[in-house]
Amino acid sequence: MTTTVQTGAPPERQGMTKRQRTTFIRSGQYAIIVVIIALLAIVGHWNDFRLQFLDFHSMGQILPRVLKTGLINTLLYTVMAFIFGLVVGLIVALMRMSEVRLYRWIATVYVELLRGLPTLLVLFLLNYAIPTLFGPSSKIFSNFYLLVTVGLGSVAAAYMSETIRAGVQAVPKGQMEAARTLGMSRGQAMRLVILPQAFRIIIPPMTNEIILLIKDSSLVYALSFTATQYDLTYLTQTAASGGISGIAATASPLLLAGIAYLVVTLPLSQAVRALERKQAKRR
């Protein structure tokens, strides 16, 4: 019986290589994006958009007020709320890590309550409910800047406290043990050894908190304020609705407000990414 042995190279596999498949898929994705952009360019009513959102005359009229009033007030409210939130958040974080059960319970209730309530509702309660409870004659509840600081800052403190607590817990436990070995009390070790290291860890998320506060500052319209206290959003919204004499009622001021927010927040976002890359290199 004769056996025939076939020789030669094996047949080549049909189909694309992995690199070819990747190129094909990416090309398809790019094509879809180009099609979507083309459809938007064809279907969009760009002339109406230009009349409503690109009225450069209205933008030029409102720009001085945006810079002198809206943007300055927005940054002022953000800084005040952030400082208040950082101080209160640090206290709440330490209370949540305390060995005293009552402190932990109070801090937990605060965090869960303030994180669960919308910021707008908190501002309404401060402006209307608290004065009703303690009396409208109390000067502390009639100060607009104090209401803004406490309202925005108390909500921010609930989030900051969790960020600070996570940063403290990220510090190796051996740091506390080494500090106690050197004769430091628990409070001294926390203040001099643990917290400085924790704050270096939490700088990026804290910067994100500033960005959130900048946007949340638009909620101060819930409080009674004067024209000189308008934030960026409320000022441009008033101009867009025709509430400022001499300025046409178009949506262009709102677009200007968006640009102003981006001018402030985009550099902060870049700073966060730079800090994260720097910390990654250290690790």
Score class of each variant (00 low, 15 high):
Ser98Pro: 11
Phe124Asn: 05
Met97Ala: 11
Leu125Pro: 03
Arg104Thr: 14
Leu195Asn: 12
Leu113Pro: 09
Val88Thr: 15
Leu123Arg: 00
Tyr145Val: 02
Ala157Thr: 04
Gly174Pro: 00
Val193Ala: 12
Leu120Gln: 02
Ala129Gln: 12
Pro131Ile: 09
Ser142Ala: 14
Ile83Cys: 03
Val109Ile: 15
Ile164Asp: 02
Arg186Ser: 13
Ser142Tyr: 11
Asn143Arg: 10
Leu113Ala: 12
Tyr110Asn: 06
Arg180Trp: 07
Asn127Ser: 14
Ser98Leu: 01
Val171Gly: 01
Val171Cys: 00
Ala166Ser: 15
Ile91Lys: 01
Phe144Asn: 10
Val92Arg: 01
Ala189Thr: 02
Leu146Met: 15
Pro118His: 04
Val109Tyr: 12
Arg96Asn: 15
Leu125Gly: 03
Met80Cys: 11
Ala156Tyr: 07
Val148Met: 06
Ser154Gln: 07
Thr149Phe: 04
Tyr103Gly: 07
Val168Trp: 03
Leu146Val: 15
Gln188Trp: 08
Pro196Glu: 03
Ser137Cys: 03
Ala198His: 12
Leu126Cys: 07
Leu102Asp: 05
Gln175Asn: 08
Arg115Ala: 02
Val122His: 06
Ala107Ile: 01
Val111Tyr: 01
Gly135Asp: 09
Ser185Pro: 06
Ile164Gly: 08
Thr163Tyr: 03
Ala81Lys: 02
Gln175Glu: 15
Arg115Gln: 09
Val155Phe: 10
Pro131Ala: 09
Ser98Lys: 08
Ala158Tyr: 11
Phe134Thr: 11
Thr119Cys: 08
Pro131His: 03
Thr108Met: 09
Ala129Thr: 13
Arg191Cys: 07
Ile164Ser: 10
Met190Ile: 15
Ala198Pro: 01
Pro172Gln: 08
Leu147Ala: 07
Val150Ala: 06
Leu133Glu: 13
Gly135Ser: 05
Ala156Gly: 01
Leu126Val: 09
Ala93Met: 02
Ile91Thr: 12
Arg186Asp: 14
Val148Glu: 09
Gly151Gln: 01
Leu147Arg: 13
Ile140Asn: 00
Met160Cys: 08
Leu146Thr: 14
Val111Lys: 10
Leu147Ser: 11
